[in-house]
Design a protein around this nucleic acid. Structure first.
Lengths: 255, 255
DNA sequence: CGTCATCTTGAGGAGTGTCAATAACTGTGG
DNA sequence: CCACAGTTATTGACACTCCTCAAGATGACG
């Protein structure tokens, strides 16, 4: 059993399983490396696999007829790639998955997923919990898009970024291009660009790729403070939960 | 075993379970009736239960500080209410659930869910499939909101409505208020109102509460034709899938 | 018939997308 | 090392859509 698989045993998806069960489950997985900008699969390809991300970032996106990419997620170590159509027979992927920088994943055939859900109750529960986190994040993102200005959304995103990658708030480099970030936040690059000078209002300075966050204390203790929902939204709380239950990823743009 | 429980055995959540397993699972459920506008639970209440809807419609929504309601879903017979926080201990509901008209549900304690996921592999798989459908719908709705005009969104919604409730396209009544529909579609009532005259462009006539859809053939065969995504979106397809796997609901505004 | 909720219509404004021009950066090959 | 091409990013002008505020109209119901 190699290093990647050994590492993966501590991922949320294998929580509350015995050492033996973990080894059995991981046996069917194949380690795969992807180069910068290489695709794991494309929208419309036959849906064959389930993936666990070991290192690197994976962009999940769709393209429209104009060639514009709409990024729905940027995944990282410990995340899984589980297309919603994976439970159907003869289905196709609903989106593209591409490595942003070099990345390593463990690949499992889709039948592996279905069979082990039935076999291991705790494995099924882990998947349901992962999905429920996922849905919470999606709901919050939708709520943000409907209630917050572009500037607030960007501010919120940068604070999250700092938290989840454990960057130094006194100064860190953006881990991916502004184009990708704009796409991920569902706005045009121009709109994103225009928010940057306004970020000062939220204690954020950004020059080129370098970001500084002043009021980092408030981030650590607090949930998102931009939302206008009845109670504070749980974006941050969810991130923290992810951090305590999962391994911290290594940020390494060079590969 | 009463009628509601007997009926529920054919719901998607109990698919591929033996008669004995279904009966065992349903034994712990309690039938509950809710009057028009009565709440099942409120945002912030201790999260105690999982629900299966037998009849009626349930509005899932949040309120902001202005008192505006944002409806995330309008559920119907065979749907489940499964707050994403149900897998955590001592959590609270993240939204409100209210009966639009009189409704009947089966209520299960949250521990019932967790234990039976571990116990019955097929039950776990059913939940994962239900969740994956749910996520697909949410993703499509987000995509619609970002790429379609208000008029297109309303047109798409009315066509879905006709399909899923099996209404007569030559003339049917809106099953709930325009205020609620606007909230469900994430727009202001005024914006919704302004789209109505423009619906003619999409072959839809609406006068008061009465809706007529001209090009119903295209609805039946086709997926959503407003989207600008790479391939046609799967909103309709998903609805159809739901229809074949589940019982047709009875529309009855009077209760 | 009056009251309340629901719905429609109008005018004005804020915010983001679009188009276009330009600047900065990246990588390649001579 | 530089020239060049292609990508990424910034900035400006403008248009469009939807939200907000406000005033009526319609409908439901006691």
């Amino acid at each position: 059993m190699n290093n990647y698989k050994q590492n993966a045993k501590s991922f949320p998806i294998f929580k509350n399983l015995s050492e033996y069960e973990k080894s059995t489950l991981l046996k069917d997985g194949q380690i795969r490396h992807f180069e910068k900008k290489e695709s794991l699969f494309r929208h419309g390809d036959p849906l064959l696999n389930f993936y666990i991300i070991c290192s690197g970032n994976i962009q999940i996106f769709r393209s429209n007829s104009n060639g514009d990419e709409k990024t729905s997620e940027i995944l990282m170590s410990t995340d899984v790639i589980c297309d919603n159509k994976i439970y159907e027979f003869d289905s196709t992927y609903q989106y593209n998955a591409t490595a942003i920088y070099n990345a390593t994943v463990i690949e499992f055939p889709k039948i592996w997923l279905r069979e082990n859900i039935k076999k291991y109750g705790n494995f099924a529960l882990n998947l349901l919990i992962i999905n429920s986190h996922h849905m919470q994040m999606a709901e919050i993102a939708t709520e943000h898009r409907m209630t917050m200005s572009a500037t607030q959304i960007v501010a919120c995103f940068l604070q999250e970024l700092c938290l989840i990658y454990n960057f130094d708030p006194r100064g860190f480099e953006l881990p991916y291009s502004k184009k990708l970030i704009a796409s991920r936040l569902g706005m045009q690059l121009e709109s994103f660009s225009r928010t940057l000078p306004q970020l000062l209002e939220y204690g954020i300075t950004i020059a080129g790729h370098c970001v500084t966050i002043d009021n980092y204390n408030t981030i650590e203790q607090n949930v998102c403070n931009h939302c206008s929902v009845e109670e504070n939204c749980l974006m941050r709380k969810n991130f923290k939960q992810k951090l305590v239950t999962s391994q911290r990823p290594n940020y390494n743009p060079e590969g």
